[in-house]
């Protein structure tokens, strides 16, 4: 919207790219969240975390949850317009994409929104896959588990969130940018079918109670 409104051709291209990108990757992100919802049987965040009392989903959910975690990270990176999926603002192609014409406080608001977005999706990722505020426990190592329990839950939660933010920033400084058709191919030809198949696996797993 902002890209269209600023009546600039770069912004228009950026906005169109951003539209195509968000519509596509929303699906993968949503489907990978659903896997966890199926396993927990609830959409309530507190219940999802409570279900991870005995172990984070990423550990006790076997390979399917691991797959959906990877897909989730890829999809949210794309959705928050971070490199290597930063096509909407592709600096070297579209100068700054949809916010080319914005400067000063308006630009700052866009950027603030972008980083808040990253924080939010990482917090969701930490909640769903990394056990929210649950400490890290290893099976029967009683003393180790006790030490972990002493670390406040807020530290755990923010620690996990910041770890995910770090991972997303790590992508940015490592990878070159994809091209728009490669980006859409990745989503529709690979991630989405994998997601669907994964969903079936997880459903089976939930019915048979195969997880720990």
């Amino acid at each position: 919207m902002a890209g269209w409104a600023s009546n600039n051709k770069y912004s228009l291209l950026g906005a169109m790219r951003s539209g195509a990108q968000i519509v596509s990757y929303e699906l993968s992100a949503g489907l990978s969240i659903i896997t966890i919802v199926i396993l927990t049987g609830s959409l309530q965040v507190s219940e999802i975390i409570a279900a991870q009392q005995t172990g984070w989903w990423i550990f006790k959910g076997h390979i399917p949850v691991l797959i959906s975690f990877v897909i989730f990270i890829i999809a949210v990176t794309a959705e928050t317009n971070r490199a290597p999926f930063d096509l909407a603002e592709a600096e070297s192609e579209l100068t700054a994409g949809f916010h080319t014409e914005y400067s000063g406080m308006k630009f700052a608001l866009f950027f603030l929104a972008e980083y808040v977005n990253i924080f939010v999706v990482c917090a969701i990722g930490a909640t769903l896959f990394l056990g929210g505020w649950m400490p890290f426990h290893i099976g029967s190592w009683e003393s180790f588990n006790h030490i972990m329990d002493y670390i406040p839950s807020s530290v755990w939660f923010f620690g996990k969130t910041f770890f995910l933010i770090f991972v997303i920033m790590w992508f940015r400084w490592t990878f070159p940018r994809l091209r728009i058709d490669q980006l859409l191919n990745l989503e529709w030809k690979y991630l989405l079918p994998i997601c669907m198949f994964n969903l079936i696996l997880v459903t089976l797993m939930a019915i048979m109670c195969w997880h720990f």
């Binding site: 490199a83 592709a90 070297s92 940015r172 490592t174 990878f175 940018r177």
Partner: peptide, 9 residues
């Protein structure tokens, strides 16, 4: 050239 295709490092 790397910066042109979006890699910063």
């Amino acid at each position: 050239m790397a910066m042109d295709i979006g890699a910063l490092t």
